[in-house]
């Protein structure tokens, strides 16, 4: 787990870390691909919530180059299938996510990221 949809919805939330705190950078990512049922309506519906550039960059970093740099105007089935694959079928099972700004390291173990903050990181 830690699918790219999740990665695209999470930002560093350390106190006063408000700029350049998204996207978190993957490091030592162990990837697994797992099939998930395709629901075009769901994929279409989630697009307005996504940060497109962050998603494409992260996908390319992890070796998937199927997404175009710009969000296309025509959302055909092939595109939606590629997007579905990137969002829901690429799982980062182990590794870390690092905030580009404050350098906080969020470890991922068994697919579950630990995003608890230390005492000095909360207000």
């Amino acid at each position: 787990m830690v699918r790219l949809i999740t990665h695209n919805l999470l930002a560093c939330h350390v106190k006063d870390c408000n700029t350049n705190n998204f996207p978190l950078e993957f490091k030592d990512a162990q990837i697994e691909l797992r099939e998930t049922e395709f629901n075009p309506e769901f994929v279409r519906g989630i697009i307005p919530k996504l940060e497109w550039k962050a998603l494409v960059d992260t996908a390319r970093e992890l070796g998937d180059t199927t997404l175009p740099l710009e969000l296309p105007e025509m959302l055909d089935d092939d595109f939606l299938k590629n997007l579905h694959h990137v969002l829901l079928e690429i799982h980062v099972e182990d590794g870390v996510m690092i905030c580009a700004n404050c350098k906080h390291v969020y470890p991922i173990s068994n697919g579950i990221p630990n995003m608890l903050l230390a005492e000095h990181e909360i207000g």
């Binding site: 999740t6 930002a11 995003m115």
Partner: peptide, 22 residues
Amino acid sequence: ASRIVDLCTFDVTHNPWRCGEL
């Protein structure tokens, strides 16, 4: 299992959700 999108350890009062209306 494939519908459990993700599990995440955090305190909901200090949560990392990037935006609302999700």
